[in-house]
Write a protein that binds this DNA or RNA. Structure first.
Length: 576
DNA sequence: TACTGGTGCGCG
DNA sequence: AAAGCGCGCACCAGTA
């Protein structure tokens, strides 16, 4: 593995029986290539990482990195071809995306079980990959060159490079968080379930408190066999009892006065907990004291992560008590206060909004500016502006923000207008919204024809406004996701650079080697949880804070906006 | 039996 | 029954 100059990139790909590595210089010219026996691969990669710290180029991070982590190997940087392809093929910052778009094989989603198959990645027999992007080295290099070409000719190359690096770093973090898991106290979870729902019945059936709530509902309805889990049946039963609601949603029920309401709301609350995060969930998703969800970077059109299985991004507040650090360890829980409005202030260079946010609760700052009277009003107005509210209290308050913060409001209003006209909008770093569907466009052009019906015109208008609200929010939500990726990536590096922990903490119960150091354990749009030995908790908390400031500078340079964090260090992930 | 669409609720 | 964005999941009902 000698090379004249250190490789800046190393592309990896599989053949039927071996792995091919391709060393590329900083200009992406090939220096050399080598075929590696699967048994030697892990140590080869570990050596190359230590020697050159290259950026690893591979087709799909979970399939490569999952196996490496299982072998105790961590890498600092990668370029995830599949994720970067998805960004570049749509980005309006790319002048000529034709070549990238033609490579349709890179549009394929990886097979669902690819991640679980990862530990077997280098076993001889697994050569077939039924779906997903190509896994061989030649395809990887070719796609990498196409992507580089698309980026390098763009006038916005530096933004795109940052976005691709952040997206790829996120892919590494997602794999690592799955490998490390979120420390989960099953006994504490069980206690919460027993307290809330009652003892778990041995032979199946409903727990006592849930059954009792159901009985009270049926008694109040005067209908001992009423079905509570079927929306149509429940609705009919309510009507028979004289509760004339149009839906069975909590919101509408709460406005009614009838003896059935209180027990019904109670029943809904309990049955939700039992169904979504009850004993079945605990058995399915928690093992060895860890909750291991599948994070899906880039899973949302805006660039936010999605999750698959376990409902990782919907952890109910009620269960946060069950998130519990290992003995001698701590959790550093940090979330950003009003991330999206701060991002909006920065990307629109709205110094007034940034000033309202600086060093304090942003909503309080808006109140102080005199635009609205109360914190609640400020919150409703700002959310309404970013989501496109037109009616109700929110719709009434938005015009006042428009006067106070014309630049910020102008940015989201413009994004809405572009979307209504069928155009494409982009985030700060260059992730673009999808083009309108053919059905959408057809409806719009149909509505302009002379013989279009009133109904057709109304539908086209409604769809246009729907799309306007989507693009309005896309620019803010998507840029906030970019900030969060930069935060994660920077934090990951800082945590990895902390000094080694003392020996008594160096070997916790189980898990990958990096999890013996302070490490990221959870991420939720604007929140991170770091699991750390107690002796490093202060350093980890400091790293979280510094990473946030660093992310702000990386995206917005010296623009004077701050990203305030609420940071708590404790043994559980409980909030307030 | 496997699917799809509707409903409702959890999260940001 | 939300208004006003983005998700995932469970459950039911209707259909293939």
């Amino acid at each position: 593995m000698d090379a004249a100059e250190p490789p800046a990139w190393i592309a990896v790909g599989r053949t039927a029986r071996t792995v091919v590595v391709v060393l590329l210089d900083a200009g992406a010219a090939e220096q050399s290539r080598e075929e590696i026996e699967p048994a030697r691969l892990a140590s080869w990669i570990a050596d190359a990482e230590a020697r050159w710290a290259p950026r690893w180029v591979w087709h799909d991070t979970p399939q490569w990195y999952g196996a490496l982590l299982a072998d105790g190997i961590r890498v600092a940087r990668c370029h995830d071809l599949r994720l970067c392809h998805a960004i570049l093929r749509e980005s309006a910052l790319v002048d000529d995306a034709a070549a990238v778009r033609r490579a349709v094989e890179w549009d394929a989603a990886p097979s669902v079980d690819a991640e679980d198959a990862a530990p077997a990645l280098f076993e001889l027999e697994q050569a077939q990959q039924p779906t997903g992007p190509p896994a061989d080295a030649d395809a990887a290099v070719a796609e990498f060159l196409r992507q580089r070409a698309a980026v390098e000719v763009s006038p916005e190359a530096s933004r795109l490079r940052l976005l691709l690096a952040a997206e790829s770093a996120g892919a590494l973090v997602a794999c690592e968080m799955r490998a490390a898991g979120l420390p989960w106290d099953a006994a504490a979870h069980d206690r919460i379930l027993v307290e809330t729902l009652g003892e778990r019945p041995r032979g199946g059936g409903q727990p006592a408190k849930l059954a009792a709530a159901a009985d009270r509902v049926r008694a109040a309805l005067g209908d001992p066999t009423a079905s509570l889990d079927s929306q149509p049946k429940l609705l009919r039963a309510l009507h028979r009892a004289g509760v004339l609601v149009e839906s069975t949603s909590r919101w509408e029920l709460a406005e009614q006065r009838h003896p059935v309401i209180e027990p019904l709301l109670e029943y809904k609350k309990l049955s939700r907990l039992a169904a979504a995060n009850g004993w079945t969930w605990l058995a399915d998703w928690v093992a060895d004291g860890r909750f291991r969800p599948v994070f899906v970077p880039g899973g949302v059109v805006t660039g936010r992560w999605a999750s698959s299985g376990g409902g990782a991004l919907q952890l109910p507040r009620q269960l946060r008590e069950a998130v519990r650090a290992d003995p001698g360890w701590r959790l550093v829980v940090a979330d950003v206060a009003q991330l999206e409005p701060r991002v909006l202030a920065a990307m629109s260079s709205d110094t007034a909004l940034a000033a309202a946010a600086r060093g304090r609760d942003l909503y309080a700052g808006i109140v102080d500016s005199g635009a609205v009277a109360t914190r609640q009003e400020a919150k409703i107005a700002l959310l309404g502006a970013m989501y496109g509210a037109t009616t109700g209290e929110s719709g009434r308050l938005v015009p006042r923000l428009r006067r106070a913060y014309p630049r910020a409001m102008g940015l989201v209003d413009d994004a809405a207008r572009v979307g209504e006209d069928g155009g494409v909008v982009s985030t700060w770093l260059g992730r673009s919204s999808p083009a309108p569907s053919p059905e959408w466009s057809a409806a719009q052009s149909r509505a302009t024809e002379a013989e279009a019906s009133g109904a057709e015109e109304a539908r086209a208008r409604r769809w246009a406004r729907d799309r306007g609200r989507f693009t309005r929010n896309f620019v803010v939500q998507g840029t906030a996701a970019e900030w969060a990726l930069a935060w994660l990536a920077d934090l990951r590096g800082r945590l990895a650079a902390l000094p080694p922990v003392s020996p008594e903490h160096a070997a916790p119960r189980s898990g990958p080697a990096f999890a013996r150091q302070p490490h990221l354990a959870f991420f939720l749009h604007d929140e991170v949880i770091v699991h750390t030995p107690a002796e490093h908790a202060d350093a980890a908390a400091e790293a979280v804070t510094e990473a946030a400031a660093s992310a702000g500078r990386l995206l917005f340079g010296s623009f004077p906006v701050d990203f305030r964090l609420d940071v708590r260090t404790s043994e559980t992930a409980l909030k307030d």
